[in-house]
């Protein structure tokens, strides 16, 4: 066990992946000499050189589109999109090209491209810098979508995403870049697409991913002080979603609250609520509830505390679930 931040864990995970396979290369804006605006790639250009850590021109579609060509040549590109809200210029290359290439090629060619996106709120930034775009990508067949919540998962999941043979949208909760956590460098302990119960409880199941997992654990702690035992599930993977631990949990607790920073309409949380309703209907003692960002643009930073789910909104939903 060692202790490090998620930013450092990602850095170490990328370093390990690059050492393990010389076909792994990193590409993105400001990721080389500067080490990325969040310093996740710090030191990698000096270790691996400019041919493997590319400071690209400032064009997101160009980054992803050329990564597809590099994959055709046998490379395993890892693209960094600088901020969540800047991924949309690459939307065609991600959803119409990257996601569908394996299908189009009838399996004759794999497209192991990882797209890292620092995402989510809580950092008081300007417009386009705090969004949660996961639903667009989870909705697209051919992509895998994952989001670590801890330094340990970040270290292992980035390596597993790179080692896999499919495109992966890798969402990094940027508000969790700097808190330290324990990392077991000897074993990951979970498959890339496994969800995981991170706190045991008996009265209600709280489900979330990314930065929301820490908020859920805080909420569960406060609930415990009021005599409510909340179980917490860290989704880790948003496409595919590993439902077995979720359903097992809900069948025990009879209640579920799904929490996300993203807007509610047609979201990952909505999908989970629908599936739990379909598959655990007779175990439920209350409707599955969602706590989400509002269906508005991400607001100006001074209002992000209103927009983002916090422990109070989560506990309000827990109260509503328990009232049934």
């Amino acid at each position: 066990m060692t202790t490090m931040t998620m930013a450092k864990a990602l850095n170490e995970g990328l370093r390990a992946a690059m050492r393990a396979d010389e076909k792994v290369l990193l590409m993105g804006e400001d990721i080389g000499t500067l080490g990325g605006v969040f310093r996740v790639t710090e030191g990698l250009k000096s270790e691996f050189g400019p041919r493997r850590v590319l400071d690209t021109p400032l064009a997101e579609s160009g980054i992803v589109g050329s990564a597809i060509g590099l994959a055709m040549r046998g490379y395993r590109p890892v693209c960094e999109i600088q901020f969540d809200g800047f991924v949309y210029p690459a939307f065609d290359q991600i959803t119409s090209q990257l996601a569908k290439q394996t299908y189009r090629h009838g399996g004759a060619q794999s497209f192991p491209v990882v797209i890292r996106i620092p995402y989510g709120g809580h950092i008081g930034a300007v417009e386009h810098h705090q969004e949660s775009p996961e639903a667009y990508f989870a909705h697209t067949a051919g992509l895998r979508v994952v989001a670590p919540a801890t330094p340990h998962d970040a270290y292992w999941m980035i390596q597993e995403a790179i080692a896999g043979n499919d495109p992966v949208v890798f969402l990094e909760p940027k508000s969790r870049y700097w808190p330290k956590g324990e990392v077991d460098l000897s074993a990951s302990g979970a498959a890339l697409h496994a969800s995981r119960v991170v706190r045991r409880g008996t009265d209600v199941t709280l489900i979330g991913h990314g930065a929301m997992v820490a908020t859920l654990l805080d909420a569960a702690e406060l609930a415990a002080a009021e005599g409510v035992s909340a179980e917490v599930v860290d989704l880790r993977s948003l496409s595919p979603i590993d439902y077995a631990p979720i359903l097992e949990s809900v069948r025990r607790t009879g209640r579920a609250v799904v929490v996300q920073e993203a807007p509610q309409q047609v979201s990952v949380g909505s999908e989970i609520a629908a599936t739990v309703g379909e598959r655990a209907f007779y175990s439920l003692q209350s409707p599955v509830l969602r706590v989400s960002g509002y269906d508005t643009p991400f607001p100006p930073a001074k209002l992000e505390g209103v927009y983002l789910p916090d422990v109070d909104r989560i506990l309000e939903a827990v109260d509503r679930a328990l009232a049934h």
Partner: peptide, 16 residues
């Protein structure tokens, strides 16, 4: 769209 795939592939040719 293919213009970028070609350019990426050609980057790989050069890197190789």
């Amino acid at each position: 769209s293919q213009s970028l795939h070609a350019t990426g592939y050609a980057m790989g040719v050069a890197f190789d």
